[in-house]
Nucleic acid binder design. Structure first.
Ligand code: FES
Ligand code: FES
Lengths: 150, 150
DNA sequence: TTAGTAAAAGACCTTTTTATCTTTTATTAT
DNA sequence: ATAATAAAAGATAAAAAGGTCTTTTACTAA
């Protein structure tokens, strides 16, 4: 449903929203370590996110990544669409060309309400709002024990 | 969440359950055409499904694929686990090592009820029961090809 | 018994995804 | 200025997923 790349991007953008600021920029390495993601890969993803104005960066000493107020208004859907090129959340769970109640696959009526809910959340909440909620809930953002192989 | 391979396998096994029998075996080609899937690829998948006794086959004229009563008792989960090697339905939506209410990712409490529901269906219904339901509901079993309608 | 049929087996190929490495450019503190 | 720092850029590579092709084996009907 989501590529690893977009999962990395979502988690680390939320991480930035929670821990970085214009005054306290963060390096790829520190973020990559914090959420346990391969740092050269994350660096590539961040380049892309900077280019499309989802996150911001400055080079040099005390440089790093952070979010502007403008960045904070982006959504998780923006991240997914940028990184994956398309939003696969809306795809049919069993691979039909179109997820559609008029032409439902055998699990459509189980899948559809879930997709509506998660898509709604990803579209209607800004990164800032999302990050605030994450902080309040004490949700986990790091892939600490992620099995890279298995 | 599911690989294309397992989607193909699920749809075509349901198709077999609905349209084939010991008296009316079906060739890979006819099934591949019906659900619009690359036939050499489906052939490979079918080999695997035969080996682990999820579907059955005989060679030669009037040969082809079909389900025995034994086959009909298998579940969609059996197919997924055989083809994907693991059941990725249970994975965390955002990639955490473990989907777990004690260590929830930011969307865990939205995702979890859905996973419970779909996993339950795939585990507790036999292929036969599933296929009967599909038939009763008139659900669609074929892939992108049918988009030609419009 | 033989010709035709259809699956089994396995080698091979392509594309996409994931990941790493090296060089260059921008920034800043000294 | 310059040395240190950190991102940008881009080349490369490894792995996984998706897909094709050819040969062999088993079966059946004429
Ligand atoms: S048609 Fe398959 S999930 Fe909607
Ligand atoms: S922890 Fe992420 S979906 Fe359950």
């Amino acid at each position: 449903m989501l590529s690893r790349a977009s999962k990395y991007a979502i988690l680390s953008t939320l991480y930035l929203a929670e821990h970085a600021s214009k005054e306290k920029k963060m390096s790829v390495k520190s973020i990559a370590n914090s959420i346990n993601v391969p740092s050269p890969f994350l660096a590539k993803l961040f380049q892309q996110l900077v280019k499309c104005n989802i996150i911001s960066s400055t080079k040099g000493p005390n440089g790093g990544f952070f979010l502007t107020e403008d960045n904070e208004k982006k959504t998780v859907i923006d991240i997914i669409e940028e990184i994956d090129g398309t939003n696969k959340i809306d795809d049919c769970f069993l691979g039909l060309a179109k997820c559609d109640g008029n032409n439902p696959c055998p699990v459509h009526f189980i899948v559809e309400p879930f997709k509506k809910k998660i898509f709604g959340k990803f579209r209607d909440q800004t990164i800032k709002e999302f990050a605030n909620e994450v902080e309040a809930q004490g949700s986990v953002l790091f892939l600490s024990g992620l099995d890279k192989k298995k």
